[in-house]
Amino acid sequence: MNPLIVALDHPDRAQILAWATDFGPHVGMVKIGLEAFCAHGPDLVRSVHDHAEVFLDLKLHDIPNTVAGAARQCNALGVSLLTVHASGGPEMIAAAVEAAPDVRVIAVTVLTSLDAQTLSVVGQGQDVNTQVQRLAKMAIDAGAAGVVCAPPDLVGVRRVIGDTPITVVPGIRPAGSAVGDQKRVATPEAARAMGATYLVVGRPITCDPTPLKVISRLNGQH
């Protein structure tokens, strides 16, 4: 299994499809997020799926019935992974899992752009590690196939969910790469050592003038 997922975060359909065509044979999956999905919808997902397995990162978060309806539509697209927000609660997660039996539904714990200060501002007073672990255990108990968490949270997450559920880890930055808007990051080697199943890398690949060389280098680091 290739653990590398490349985030194709871009509004231009032609660019996304070019990346999917070029990167597909060399990575585990490509990620379609909100920007691309809002610009081009399910048809883009179908087209990308012709070239690579798709991680559809929509972070669904609504009442259980609404999330179930959305997950059912995603199930029909043939995607491999689909995100929901763990903070939607166990009923919502279970509804998504039931509605999308062919997809591994994974729950986002705490976004990698959030730190303790921001969590306090939005009224979640627990420290980041406590919040992540609580949400991760709840999500797995509700039937999620795994969780999304930041690199520093991995050891604690593995402690509460065990070795079987998958962990999808954004905030991966090869040594020397710019951190950007991510606040909790790690190198690929460090994340894998801490228990990451999949590594999500976006701008360090897509913004590089030689992205296939970056992918080749990353494939040698996991």
Rank of each mutant, 00 (worst) to 15 (best):
N2Y: 02
I5E: 12
V6A: 08
D12Y: 07
L17Y: 05
L17V: 09
A18S: 14
F23S: 02
G24H: 08
G24C: 10
G24Q: 05
I32P: 01
P42E: 13
P42Q: 13
D43F: 01
R46C: 03
S47V: 01
D50P: 04
H51Q: 13
D57I: 01
K59V: 14
D62L: 03
A71P: 07
Q73E: 15
A76T: 12
A76W: 12
G78Y: 08
S80F: 12
H85K: 13
S87I: 08
A94D: 13
A99H: 10
A99T: 10
A100S: 09
P101E: 13
R104M: 11
R104L: 08
L111K: 01
T112C: 03
L114C: 00
S120L: 11
Q124I: 15
Q124R: 15
V128G: 09
Q131F: 05
L135R: 14
L135Q: 15
K137E: 15
A142C: 13
A145S: 14
L154S: 06
G156E: 11
V157F: 02
R158G: 09
R159Y: 06
P165C: 10
I166Y: 03
T167R: 05
V168T: 07
P170V: 00
I172T: 04
P174N: 09
D181I: 02
V185Y: 00
A190C: 12
R192Q: 12
A193G: 10
L199S: 07
V200F: 00
V201M: 00
G202K: 01
C207M: 14
L218E: 04
